[in-house]
Nucleic acid binder design. Structure first.
Length: 481
DNA sequence: ATGTTC
């Protein structure tokens, strides 16, 4: 606490923590927020974390945070930090425990009016088809070598096995294959935790939701979105695999920190040079988790399509079940950016922040060259979700990044104490939202009141120019671990 | 987020 008096307002939605706010800061902090969010972030010690991250070796321009900022391990959730690829560091805490946690949106050509009668049947079938909850095993059983291939080669390998469609790859970052993955850098323990978890939802804030598109604006039509449309949102990550990889490399880098002579304000910021044995090994393992997470969401998509085919008695292709896009909001990526007029190769850490590139970037699929990259923003259970698109302004202001969701405002523990799962389920059903939860206590942790207002978060991102709203969806059915 | 304190 106590950073608020040092913060300077830059414009309506941007605040600067000057580089002299604490010892060791190499760059300022920039937080995209309104006053209310800023004050909460300070009370949460998250502003302090923004300032801490500004001390990382090789960080450029600023340590940033999106309006869904809240306290996290070392780095704030909602944080963006770019370090020089040659002289800077990579830090597992800047990616997070759930490596490549992300969201995808599966479209349909169905209108809500024609589909709503089938909703309970559909939800029950999805509930029976997609494994969920803590410690869950999946339906795909693979030999060790096969899992290694998924980690090394990503979603194309899964598609080659008949799970998912070839065209889905165009709707995934890196075409479903994060480069540089090396399964030999993944520990046996990480391997053991992840190997049976391909195609599982998980728990916590991970969910599968059926939603109805409520309001659209251009270029919605170009993205295949229309008002009244039934869509499916999937939020999941790399499960036990990513968690263990993060744990392993926090240990590895904790042991090597002295060797590199870094003095950091928080032990949780452990890191190693991008160009070091430890840094390269982490990135090779992180890439495995990224590929695993994309395969996870792709396998879940496969079962979603199967359920729709059974319930609507039509092929998934004729039901228009294309993937709009699959975003990862916990990842570090090597990207080129212009900083102070110089083109630099940077390691961009996004932790609870989403890449939001304009169509001009080579990373964006050709089909989105005109519209910009779709960004999928889940709200909390009782509220809306959004489709945004990336902007040129985001590239200039935030290394092409925007928010990732509403952001917690209450700890899981506090939410559990305050909300009863049974009551919440009834409340949501009273709002016309069907609920299937593996555990009612898990539902309570994710209660709407434990989150910020996603509308405000998205509005700030748009107001700051970091992305533009294209569609708003309301949930009609939610499935949680 | 997470075989929820190996």
């Amino acid at each position: 606490m106590g950073f608020l008096d040092k913060v300077k307002q830059i414009d309506e939605y941007a605040w600067e923590i000057p580089a002299d706010a604490r010892e060791g800061m190499r760059v300022p902090g920039i937080v995209f927020a309104d006053r209310e969010i800023l004050e909460k972030a300070d009370a949460d010690n998250a502003l302090q974390q923004v300032a801490n991250v500004a001390c990382l070796p090789g960080i450029v321009r600023a340590s940033m945070a999106m309006p869904d900022i809240h306290w996290g391990y070392g780095f704030p959730i909602g944080g963006v930090a770019a370090t020089l690829a040659e002289e800077g560091v990579i830090s597992p805490g800047g990616v997070g425990y759930d490596i490549s946690c992300g969201v995808r949106l599966v479209l349909t050509s169905l209108g809500w009016e024609e589909a709503k009668e089938k909703l309970p049947e559909l939800l029950d079938m999805l509930n029976a088809s997609v494994p969920k909850g803590l410690g869950t095993k999946g339906r795909i059983h693979l030999e060790r070598r096969e899992v290694e291939r998924l980690m090394a080669d990503g979603a194309p390998e899964l598609v080659a096995r008949g799970i998912g469609w070839e065209e889905d790859l165009e709707a995934m970052e890196e075409r479903g294959r994060y480069p540089g993955a090396d399964p030999s850098k993944v520990s046996e323990r990480a391997f053991a935790r992840g190997k049976d978890q391909v195609g599982t939802l998980g728990s916590g804030n991970h969910f599968l939701e059926i939603q109805v598109v409520e309001e659209t604006r251009p270029p919605a039509e170009k993205l295949g979105l229309f008002e009244g449309q039934l869509v499916v949102m999937v939020h999941s990550g790399s499960r036990g695999l990513g968690h263990q990889i993060c744990t392993d490399y926090i240990d590895v880098m904790g042991a090597s920190i002295k060797k590199y002579g870094y003095s950091l304000p928080d032990r949780q910021l452990v890191c190693a040079p991008v160009e070091s044995r430890e840094g390269r090994d982490y990135l090779a393992a992180m890439a495995c988790a990224a590929n695993f997470a994309m395969c996870n969401r792709e396998a879940i998509t496969h079962w979603i399509r199967e359920c729709f085919e059974k319930v609507f008695r039509a092929g998934a292709r004729s039901l228009g079940m294309h993937v709009l896009y699959d975003v990862s909001h916990n990842l570090a990526k090597m990207e080129e950016h212009v900083v102070d007029g110089k083109r630099l190769t940077l390691m961009v850490h996004r932790k609870g922040a989403t890449r939001a590139f304009p169509g001009s970037r080579p990373e964006v699929p050709d089909k989105y060259a005109e519209t910009g990259q779709p960004v999928i923003i889940p709200g909390d259970m009782g509220s809306h979700s959004y489709v945004l698109v990336g902007t040129e302004e985001a590239l200039e202001k935030s290394f092409g990044s925007t928010c990732h969701g509403a952001g917690r405002t209450m700890s899981r523990k506090a939410a559990k104490k305050q909300v009863r799962g049974e009551e919440l389920k009834r409340r949501l059903e009273g709002m016309g939202i069907l609920v299937r939860a593996a555990q009612l206590s898990g539902l309570a942790e994710e209660a709407p009141e434990a989150y910020k207002d996603v509308r405000a978060v998205v509005q700030i991102c748009e107001g700051a120019g970091l992305s533009r709203r294209v569609a708003r969806m309301r949930p009609v059915a939610v499935m949680k671990g």
